[in-house]
Computed example of a mutant assay.
Amino acid sequence: MNDILCKLLEVVKHNPTQTAEAIAEKLSITRQSASRKLKGWVEDNLLTVSGRGRSTRYELVEKVDTFTFSLSNELDEFQVYTQTLDSKLNGLSKNVLEIFQYGFTEMFNNAIDHSNGTEIVVEIRQTPISTFVSITDNGLGIFEKIQKAFDLIDIRQSIFELSKGKLTTDKKNHSGEGIFFSSKIFDFFCINSKGWAFVHDAGVIDVMYEHDIEYIEGTKVMFELLHSSTKRTKDVFDQFAMPDEYAFATTVVPVNLAKHEGEFLMSRSQAKRLVARFEHFQKVILDFQGVTSIGQGFADQLFRVYQNDHPNVQLFVINATNDIKDMIQRTGYQIK
C-alpha cells in the first residue's frame, strides 16, 4: 500500500462520518469524486460502509484474532510472538517489525514474571493501516503491586513512578525499562488495571484516568502503531541515553501526573513525591505541559533544595508557562 493511500485511509479513520467531505478537502476534489474513491475502497475490502445520506458511516476493515495462554514456567514470550503476531506483519518494513517484536516480548514477559496470574490473553486487531495489540493477564494488577512493593501513598503515585522509568519490583531479573521505552515508541500505549489507566498517545500529553474506563481485574497493556511508521527503536533508545553512552540515563517526567485531580502544585511534599528516584538518572526533563502554575514552596524544594543536594542530576524544563518560569527563576535556578 502506497503512502498516499495510507494517509487517505487515516483521514477516513478520523472522519467516519462526513467522510466524503473530508477526503474532498484533503485532495482538493469534488465531493462526488471523493465518493467514487470511497466506493472503490469499499470494493477493495479496505472499508465498510453503513447507513445512508447524512447517516453514512465508513470504517476501516478490521480483522480480530484472540489467543489464550496458560501461565507456566515453560511459557516463552518470543515463541508466543512468533505464534501470534509475527506472521500478521508480513510485508511491513524492518523498523516496524523491530518495534512490534520489542514491545510485544517486553510486555508479554512482564505478564509472565510479574502478574502472579494463571492466564494471559492476546488480542490482535488489524486494519489496512495499523495493528493494535492488547495483552491481558488475570493477576494482581500492576499499579496495586507497585504501590505495595514501594509503600506508596496511593495508586496515582504508582502510575506516576511507572511513567518515569527504571521502576521494577524484581531488580535481579528486570531493569524497569520495558514499559518506559514501549510507551514512547508506539503511536498509542495504555496500561489499564482495576479502574485506573496510564495513557501515552503520540503528540498528546500523558494522561492518568480513574474509573472512566473498562474495569480490568488484572492488567491490560495495549499498544498500536501505523504500518507506515518511520520510527526506529534505536532512535528512541538514543534519545534517552547520554552522549557516548548506551545506558538509560535520561527520563522525561510529565509533571501534570504529580497533580491529582483538583490539586495545585504548591507544597514541598508534592515536590518531594515528584523527585522520588530522580537520582537513578543523569538527566531529568520536566515536562510542564498541562500545568498552569506552581507554588513557591514547590519550586524551591525542586529547583534549589533538591538540586543542591543532587548536583549530578541535571534538571531541564520544557513546555513551561511564563508564570512557571518566573517562579523557577526566583529560586535562583537558571532554566536550561
Rank of each mutant, 00 (worst) to 15 (best):
V96C: 01
Q18F: 07
A111L: 15
R304H: 05
M1Q: 03
G53V: 00
S55I: 07
G103S: 07
K272G: 14
I179P: 08
V236P: 03
K325C: 11
G295A: 03
L8A: 00
R330V: 12
I99M: 03
E74P: 12
A249Y: 08
E123R: 10
M242I: 12
L265W: 10
E210G: 04
T82N: 10
M242V: 13
T321P: 00
L47C: 02
K194G: 11
L97Y: 06
K325E: 12
T30A: 05
E224V: 03
T321F: 01
L47I: 02
I112A: 10
K259S: 11
S163H: 02
T118L: 13
N95E: 14
E217N: 14
I142P: 00
Y81F: 15
D86C: 06
G297T: 12
E144S: 11
H260L: 15
V221T: 15
F180K: 03
R57Y: 09
K26V: 04
E144V: 14
S193M: 08
D151S: 14
N95A: 13
N110P: 04
S229C: 11
K94Y: 09
V313L: 01
Q282A: 09
L140W: 13
T82E: 13
Q83W: 15
K7W: 08
A202P: 02
G295V: 05
I285R: 02
M222N: 07
E106A: 02
D3F: 03
D212M: 12
Y58R: 05
D235W: 06
N308Y: 07
M222V: 10
I328A: 00
D287H: 11
S267R: 05
E25S: 05
L46T: 04
I155N: 10
Q329I: 03
I135H: 09
V64R: 10
K172M: 13
I328M: 02
K172N: 09
A249E: 13
F278D: 11
V96S: 00
V80R: 00
T251G: 06
Q307H: 14
L9T: 00
D137L: 02
S193Y: 08
I213Y: 07
G91K: 07
N15D: 05
A299M: 04
Q296N: 13
V121L: 07
T251C: 09
L38H: 04
K37T: 05
D244R: 14
H280F: 10
S175C: 04
D323V: 04
P128R: 04
D76V: 00
Y81C: 06
G139R: 05
T136K: 15
I179T: 09
T66V: 13
K166H: 06
G165S: 05
R268M: 09
E77R: 13
Y81R: 05
F78E: 15
P128F: 12
D287K: 08
S93C: 11
R156H: 08
S50L: 01
A149Q: 09
L226D: 09
I135R: 10
N116V: 07
H114P: 11
H14A: 04
I23T: 04
K13P: 07
M208G: 13
E62V: 02
F288W: 06
G178P: 01
V133S: 06
S193E: 14
M107E: 01
F303W: 00
L27F: 06
H280Q: 14
V252C: 09
V133K: 03
K184T: 09
Q157S: 15
S115L: 07
V236K: 08
T17K: 12
V204N: 15
K39T: 10
A241Y: 07
F108M: 01
T230V: 14
M266D: 14
V121N: 08
